[in-house]
Design a binder for these strands. Structure first.
Lengths: 145, 145
DNA sequence: TTCTTTCGATTGATTAGTCAAGTGATACAA
DNA sequence: TTGTATCACTTGACTAATCAATCGAAAGAA
């Protein structure tokens, strides 16, 4: 009757993994007083600053409204600054934001890495990366039309 | 300086895929007037009913508070019923919920399946499923201690 | 010069989730 | 019998996201 396909089982695993690993990430990042979503955004800003709100929204694949609120929170915390020029708001890290990002980056990387390396060999990781890239590019393509 | 590991690149792909595919799913499910999260919960109830709130929460890995709010919405829409016995609330589908689930199930399965089958061979799918299961079990383990 | 379009950003309403404190009934000990 | 502890569930305050409506400045057309 209700027959699941292999693809749908992959789907479930992926959804569960992402959700659970976000919970773990948030738990880990609590000591740095920051959330996984906030770290993701700060990291993008650190890499591409100065960056416009709309470009940033696209990079982290969230809506214009979503990035507006997120940046309001980050601005309130003093991590980022917005400067208006024409109708564009350019985003960059403040000193506090830079410090926070530098403080957290290596630890977060280490955290993510050790979780995956604790259960997959180097070969398996290469294989998983190749497959994930394929499916992710497919959703990206589908999203843009 | 900022060197990313293979594991962290896998992480990014996974986060992006899950997020984008949820957007696609929600977009697809809009025609059935339901969200991906709601479908997920209805599907679990349909499989395990009657099921207690706490067991349901565990199955979809969300908090007790989260499931309480979600069920309130589903109850308001008339998809589920809660019956109190002792201190446990037993959840089951209403007629309307059953109909909705049956209506949506095949289409959602087809949607998920075609997205993945459009870019991975059967062999690749098997391989991806095996690897995803490994990492997901790892996060699950980590979460429970 | 005024009128309209365009476009980035914001905001209100809603869904979805978290944590922590609170509720209310039962069970069990003093 | 009167606490008190326990346990499932709820709720308030918050983060995070969506969509749709709106704002406001600039650009271009009449």
């Amino acid at each position: 009757m209700k027959k699941n396909t292999l693809a749908s089982l992959i789907w479930v695993r992926m959804i569960r993994f992402t959700h659970q690993s976000t919970v773990l990430s948030n738990d880990f990042l609590k000591q740095y007083d920051i959330t996984a979503a906030q770290f993701d955004v700060l990291n993008q800003i650190g890499t591409y600053q100065p960056i416009s709100q709309s470009e940033l929204a696209e990079r982290v694949t969230i809506s214009a409204g979503g990035i507006s609120r997120m940046l309001s929170r980050l601005e309130r915390e003093g991590y980022i600054a917005r400067s208006i020029e024409w109708k564009v708001k350019w985003i960059s890290l403040t000193e506090k934001g830079r410090t926070k990002l530098d403080e957290v980056f290596e630890h977060q990387l280490q955290f993510q890495t050790s979780l995956i390396e604790s259960c997959l060999s180097k070969e398996e990781q290469k294989s998983l990366y190749r497959l994930m890239t394929k499916v992710q590019k497919q959703t990206e393509k589908q999203l843009n039309n």
